[in-house]
């Protein structure tokens, strides 16, 4: 796990500001709602109680508390339902990302993420689909090179079988194999598989002895 401390807290400004807005507006809505319930119930009770005397104060207090508790339950339920919808905008894409990643890890590179309208994490979807597309292209190229390698090997076998293996033929086959290996090296050189930095370098020529 990466343990370095975060220094920039507004990384995805748009997304973060949107969620700040949702949290602040929800808080304001609840504060306004509770405030309105308290003032409306208490003052309307006071204003609408005929021949109001102080002995009725406890009745008004109890009634206001009862109404407030009722409304707090309503607010909690409303916010719980709202939060399910809001969190679903993030949880849905995250779930799809997880499932698609598992499928890609198992070898199905045809997978792409399609998010629904209103879902968050669109940038992540695009980046993920680009990665999937790029992996597909690399593996496709890899297969082309393997096909070429198979064809060259077949030709070699054919020549051995026909005992037609002169020095020109050997030279030609060596050249073909060299070309195929160069192509294969170019394809795999795009992958970085460790942090040492000494992965295959595409520009470095392959020695004939290696072939």
């Amino acid at each position: 796990m990466n343990k370095h401390r975060r220094r920039t807290y507004l990384i995805k400004t748009g997304l973060q500001l949107r969620y700040m807005g949702i949290i602040i507006s929800t808080m304001l809505l609840v504060a306004f709602g509770v405030g309105w319930v308290i003032y409306h119930t208490s003052w309307s009770r006071i204003a609408n109680t005929p021949d109001l005397t102080l002995d009725k104060l406890s009745d008004i207090f109890d009634t206001v508390n009862g109404i407030l508790m009722h409304w707090i339950v309503v607010f909690i339920l409303a916010i719980a339902i709202l939060s399910i919808f809001v969190s679903h905008k993030i949880a849905g894409p995250v779930y799809r990302l997880e499932e698609t990643s598992k499928l890609i890890a198992s070898g199905d590179l045809t997978q792409q993420i399609q998010l629904r309208q209103g879902d968050e994490l669109r940038d992540l979807q695009e980046a993920f689909n680009q990665m999937s597309e790029s992996l597909r292209k690399m593996v496709g190229k890899d297969r082309e090179v393997i096909d070429k390698l198979v064809a060259t090997t077949n030709r070699l076998r054919d020549k051995i079988d026909k005992k037609n293996l002169g020095s020109d033929s050997i030279e030609e086959l060596t050249r073909d194999l060299h070309v195929v290996i160069e192509e294969l090296r170019l394809v795999t050189s795009g992958f970085k598989i460790d942090d040492s930095g000494d992965d295959a370098e595409p520009d470095k020529p392959v020695a004939a002895a290696e072939v």
Binding site: T53, L54, D55, K56, L57, S58
Partner: peptide, 9 residues
Amino acid sequence: IYGISCREI
């Protein structure tokens, strides 16, 4: 509040 109401009663 209960004390005020009780006193009044």
